[in-house]
Amino acid sequence: MLEIAGLTVRYGEFRAVSEVTLSVADGEVLALLGPSGCGKSTLLRAVAGLEAAQGAVRWDGAELSGVPVHRRGFGLVFQDGQLFPHRDVAGNIAFGLRMSGLARAERESRVAELLELVGLAGYGARGVRELSGGEQQRVALARALAPRPRLLLLDEPLSALDRMLRDQLAGELAELLRKTGSTALVVTHDHDEAATLADRVALLRAGRVVQTGAPEQVWCSPADEWAAGFLGCTAFLPARVRAGEASSVLGSFAVAGPDGPATLGLRPAGLRVAERGEVAGRVVGRTNRRDRVELSVRLDEKLGGHEVPAQSGVRTAPRLGEEVRLALDPDGVALVRP
C-alpha cells in the first residue's frame, strides 16, 4: 500500500506540489486528475523518486525518501513511450528483467508473455521506430510491467494518441490493470479516462488535492465551483436541498445528504430538449457535435433569464432563435454543497 503524507515539491519559491496526502490500497487504481500545470505529473515523479520532495512517501509503512529511483520497484510509463531507440521491442521489454539479473530463458518467456498480454505477440524483433504511436505505448506498458513492479505509475499514458485509439486503449488498459491486479497511480487531465481506468479519483488544483472519491461521486458532487467547472459545468444556479430533494428554477431531483443551500452546476447533458419539458427558453447559440447538438438557451424572464447549456439529438435539433422546452436530467448536473 502506498501512502503519501504532507508531500511538497518546490522549484525555488514555487510550490508545484503542496502538502499532498493520499493513499493507494493494494490492487487499487487512483487517478490524479487536474488541468495542465496543476502539479499532478510532478507528484507522480516525486513518488517515483525523480523529484526531490519534502514529506513522506511510504510503501507498506516503510519510508522511501532515502531509496533511489532504481531501488523503489515502481514501474513508470511516460506519455510518449520513451522507448530505448537502440533496442528492439523485446530488448525494451527485457530491460528491467536484465537489471534484476533474470536468466535469459526466463527473460524470453516473460517477454513473450507480456507481448501476448498487450496484444503484440510476434513483435519482439521489430525496431521501435517502426511502431505506431499506439503500439509504442503498448510496448512501454509491457516494459514497465515486465519486472512485476509493486506500483505502476502512468503519466498521461494515452494523451499522445488520437481520439479513437485513445478510447479503445483506455478500455484495454483498464482491463489489463484489473487482470494483473496492479496497484497504479494514473495522471490524466481527462475525466473520461479517469473514470474508465480508476477506482478512485484525486482532483488536483495548483498543487493541492481538492477532492478525492469514486469517479461518479466526484462527477456528481464536486467539492466546489472550480471543481465543477473543471468537470464541464459552464453555468451555475442557486439550489436548495430539503428532505432528500434538490430543487431550483429548473425543477427538482432526488439527492442524498443533509438539508441546506447548494449550487447547481449545469452541463449540456443536464438539460435535454423535450416537448413536455418543464422549463421554457430560447436558443441563443448552437454547436454541432458528432452525436448531438449542444445549445445555449436563455431561460424565460420569470425563471430569472439565465443562459444555460443544453443538448438535443442531431435530427431534431432546434434552430437558432427557436423557442424550446427543456427537461432536467439529474445525471448531467452537479450539485455543489457549501
Binding site: 529511483v69 532504481h70 520497484g73 515502481f74 513508470l76 520513451q82 528491467g96 537489471m99 534484476s100
Partner: peptide, 15 residues
C-alpha cells in the same frame, strides 16, 4: 526521460 525510464526499471546511475 529515457534515463529516468531506465532508472525506474532498476538501473543504478552508472548502469
Amino acid at each position: 526521460r529515457l534515463r529516468q525510464a531506465a532508472a525506474t526499471l532498476g538501473a543504478a546511475p552508472a548502469r
